[in-house]
Each structure stands twice: as C-alpha cells, then as structure tokens.
C-alpha cells in the first residue's frame, strides 16, 4: 500500500512545472455534510528575498443539500505596492461526488468564481478533488484548472496541483506533508491539522503549514493558517 502511495507521489513530483503566482492555499477534502454551516478564516504569508505578501480570507459556508456546499469569501491582500485591503470576492461550490468509503477512493469537484474588487477582472476555477484512506493515513489530491481574464489581466489558463498526506494521530494533532505546484512554483513542507469538538455539531478545525519553494535557490517560504468553526 505504501509503495502505491509513494509511486503516485513520485509520478507527480517528477513532472515539470511552470509556475508564477501564489499557489499555497489549502488542500480541499471532498466531503460534505448536510446541515453544515461554517465560518472560515485563512491566512497566507509568503516571503522571498525581496518581497513579502500577505493574504487573508474570511468566509461563510453552508451545505445546500446532502452533497453540495456553497461558500462565499472576502479576500484581502497586502502586496509589494499596496497596503492591506479588500482585493476580491469569491463564490465557491464543492460537490461530494461519491459516498465516503464506498469506492476505492473518494471524489469531489470544486467550482469557484472570483471577481476583483473595483475592477472588471475575473477568475474561474474548476477541478477534481481526490481522497484515499490507507489505514490511519489519508492521501488527498486536488487538480485545478484556472482561467483568468479582464481589463487588467492577461487572458490565461493555468493549472494547480495540491497534495496532502496526513496521519490521523490524534483528533487535535494530525501531522501531514503538503505539496503545491503551479504557476512556476513547486513547494513542499510540513503541515498539521486538528479538530476540537464542542456540543452537537459545533466544532473548531485548524490547519497550518510551512511550505518552502524548491525550484529557486533564493528564499521563498510560505506560511498558511486556517480556522473553521462549524455549527
């Protein structure tokens, strides 16, 4: 079983990538629960030798059926030239395509539409979410196609690939390794996620990761943190 996982990872890592933007974000899981509602906050900080970038997202999400979750985001960024401020809005739909555990692996799909604040710039993302359980470990992979266009954007199509291999050690501490590729970027690093349950459906989930870019010789580190409160 481990050799199969290693094979999949090596196949992906060994491919060439062309990258150019912020790729480190979140590895999506395919699962949706009915009656699920959540607030989410994400932070992404990227530091290179001559630049730093901070992105934050706040979101509210709700499942609208047993298999579909809709989430709306406000996206803020601080770039080299701009102070932190609202940059974009996004609507995301996640669809759980298969029942967890029924097939050899679990599948989902993601659809996102993002519009830049005060500009007629758009980005549409769609892709596949895959998860396979190996005992107490889980392999999660995302493959996304991204199309951007608008008055300030060069029309282009990009792809991003994300991978997480997680060990379910304790509910609060589940160590993982994450890989992000896309837009000329290849990053890998340690991560963890955890969950704390409260009464009923109330629970707090957290994730953090420290991803280092490997294809450049200079400094290029990304820290990502996310909290989700489900109720």
């Amino acid at each position: 079983m481990c050799s199969r996982v290693l094979f999949i990872i090596l196949m992906i890592v060994s491919t060439n990538v062309l990258a150019d933007g912020i790729v480190v974000d979140k590895v999506y899981h395919p699962y949706v629960l009915p009656n699920e509602r959540e607030f989410e906050w994400r932070l992404m900080s990227r530091q290179t030798d001559d630049n730093s970038l901070i992105g934050q997202r706040i979101a509210y999400g709700q499942s609208i059926s047993e298999t579909v979750m809709v989430e709306g985001y406000l996206i803020g960024e601080k770039t080299e030239t701009d102070d932190f401020g609202l940059q974009a809005y996004e609507v995301e739909v996640r669809w759980m395509m298969t029942e967890q555990g029924e097939l050899w692996a679990d599948w989902g799909m993601l659809f996102e539409v993002e519009k830049k604040h005060n500009a007629n710039d758009w980005e549409v993302t769609t892709g596949i979410i895959f998860e396979k359980e190996f005992g107490k470990a889980s392999l999660t992979m995302n493959l996304f196609g991204i199309y951007e266009w608008g008055e300030n954007l060069q029309e282009e199509f990009e792809t991003e690939f994300r991978l997480k291999y997680r060990y379910r050690w304790l509910p609060q501490i589940q160590p993982a390794i994450e890989i992000y590729t896309g837009e000329g970027y290849f990053g890998i690093g340690p991560a963890f996620m955890g969950i704390q349950r409260f009464d009923g459906q109330k629970q707090l989930k957290w994730e953090a990761g420290f991803i280092s870019e490997l294809s450049n010789s200079g400094k290029d580190h990304s820290l990502r943190v996310a909290f989700e409160y489900e109720f």
Binding site: T15, N16, V17, T98, W104, I128, T159
Partner: peptide, 20 residues
C-alpha cells in the same frame, strides 16, 4: 504544457481505479 496532460491522465486513471 505536457505536465497538464500528465496530471489529467493520472486523475482519470485513479477515477477508473475507483470504479472497481
């Protein structure tokens, strides 16, 4: 780029494995 085809092929293969 070629790697896009590769990733797509990988996911398609995994999908068909899942149908087992």
């Amino acid at each position: 780029p070629k790697y896009i085809y590769f990733h797509c092929l990988l996911f398609i293969s995994l999908f068909f494995m899942s149908q087992n």
